[in-house]
Design a binder for these strands. Structure first.
Length: 137
DNA sequence: GCCAACGTTGGC
DNA sequence: GCCAACGTTGGC
């Protein structure tokens, strides 16, 4: 199973709002970047991902699951971009902050550290496990 | 609020 | 098809 990381400004869409949708989930729209689109297209139902708060918080706060695979984003007038549906699975016991990730040498290759502007990112199995470890401290 | 980094657009 | 200009993102 592949792992992902989704960035959201909590002002626009927060973890609490995602949780409030329950098992019905919510579509992850608004992606207008081809690399991010490529990742969305690669997602499979059941794939898990981290939910990251950018700007405010700057931390991974929860885990989400893909519940609907790539389909057109009707808010995109150009018709070029699509989206997936995500539901909240569980919050992390402790949020893992960007600072903590930067201080962990084993996470120095995370895209979050090296290309902070990409809004949908793949996460390796190893990175996934390390972040989970950090969240259990 | 600033600004560096980066992706996209559009003129040539 | 190149590349300058521009807009956006997101950390600080």
């Amino acid at each position: 199973m592949a792992h992902w990381l989704y960035k959201s400004e909590p002002d626009v869409w927060s973890w609490d709002q995602q949780v409030a949708r329950g098992d019905a989930g919510e579509h992850w729209n608004g992606v207008r970047n081809y690399l991010a689109r490529k990742h969305l297209q690669a997602m499979k139902n059941g794939d898990l991902g981290f939910f990251y708060h950018s700007n405010q918080g700057k931390a991974i706060v929860g885990i989400v699951e893909v519940i609907r695979e790539y389909y057109p984003d009707h808010t995109d007038e150009s018709g070029r971009f699509g989206m997936v549906d995500l539901k909240a699975v569980r919050p992390l016991k402790h949020p893992v902050t960007l600072d903590e990730i930067k201080q962990e040498p084993r996470l120095s290759d995370m895209i979050l550290v090296n290309n902070s502007r990409l809004s949908v990112q793949p996460v390796t199995d190893e990175e996934w496990q390390i972040v989970l470890e950090l969240s259990e401290r």
